[in-house]
Design a protein around this nucleic acid. Structure first.
Lengths: 198, 198
DNA sequence: ACTGGAATAGACCGATCGGTCTATCTATTC
DNA sequence: GAATAGATAGACCGATCGGTCTATTCCAGT
């Protein structure tokens, strides 16, 4: 079964909106790239905002699956998995398609904190935070809520900084320096709250 | 001497663009709030983009002055000043006007990494990083470049997370938990690279 | 072969946008 | 008081936007 029109629309919207932004990108841009007609879109979605929410939900699903797969195949020990999250970010930042965190971007583009788009973005950030917390608990770290928050902040901060510093004349190792500093910080913070093992 | 039309324009643009975003906010919105006519704007600036750059430069100046004043009046010891940066963020996040980092917002709103707006935003982020580095050097911390990068990431990350989580139904202490976790992380990281004093 | 639901192209709408232009007014300066 | 420079209101432009509507085509189920 080929993917439905609806699925293709969401997939294309996700890619285009991530690459070129939300407000600056017209509906026609998405339709042209997807090879789908105008009315088909409005048969499936009430508005552009609804399409954006669907695109964000899809991205959330895709991103978290990729992150989870990367981390769980990179390490078995929960504490090592926490560090692997930074390796995941490292390869993400270095990829050509990197354009910051799509959900932080959405947060920046829509001023109303309580619109559906912002709430969807917040859901993603919360879900990432919850995953990190789960890993912290699995690693038996002391005060898992606090260390989870700290690691989450390091991941988001590295992403935001890498995005903001992204210029053509920027040295490629700027990414590396940022994310490796974040990882080193994470490592030190984790070590300080490890359970006292034998 | 009353502020010139140009100054008033920049001031108003800075506030409006921060509050309501760049792309979503029309030129007319700024002009109406400033009580200034259309042609006056285009006599002083070639385009909306130029006004945005000027607004960002002004915000950069204002923000860094406020940050510096807060920090330098909060503590004398350089290491304490580094921690005071987190207190500065705490009161910023809690203020009514908080709408994320204007420069991360600008980065998210403009897709071209090499446009003047993105470069201006990157300049600000770099300047903040430099200030933190200066404090790390003054504090005689070991490997000041790395610890400075880490603290910078914590500050930006806390800001991004606080912004993304900002909903009306969010508990007010969400801010506090985020920034205080970041500060605790900063404190631990700093302690690990302090010069061995008597 | 017929039918019904879905997708198509593309005209169309009202609104808004960034930017230009003109004509009028005001205030300083000589 | 004339002249010059800057600010004003507001019409105006072409382009683009999100969204609607229609008429046509395609294709699967019976």
């Amino acid at each position: 079964m080929p993917p439905s029109r609806r699925e293709e629309l969401i997939e294309t919207a996700m890619n285009v909106f991530y690459r070129e932004g939300f407000n600056c990108t017209g509906i026609d841009r998405v339709l042209r790239e997807a090879g789908i007609s105008r009315m088909t879109l409005y048969n499936h979605f009430k508005s552009k905002d609804e399409l954006i929410v669907a695109a964000l939900r899809r991205r959330d699903e895709l991103f978290r699956n990729r992150m989870r797969n990367f981390i769980e195949s990179a390490a078995k020990d929960p504490a090592d998995r926490l560090l692997a999250a930074f390796d995941f970010n490292a390869q993400w930042f270095a990829s050509d398609e990197f354009n910051g965190c799509m959900f932080l971007n959405a947060t920046s583009e829509f001023a109303d904190p309580d619109c559906a788009i912002r709430r969807t973005a917040a859901d993603h950030v919360r879900a990432i935070g919850q995953y990190i917390l789960d890993l912290c608990r699995a690693a038996n770290l002391r005060d898992p809520e606090t260390i989870a928050r700290q690691l989450h902040i390091l991941l988001e901060g590295a992403c935001a900084k890498a995005h903001a510093m992204d210029q053509v004349d920027a040295s490629p190792e700027a990414y590396t320096e940022t994310i490796s500093a974040a990882k080193a910080a994470a490592s030190a913070l984790i070590d300080a709250v490890r359970p006292q093992t034998a």
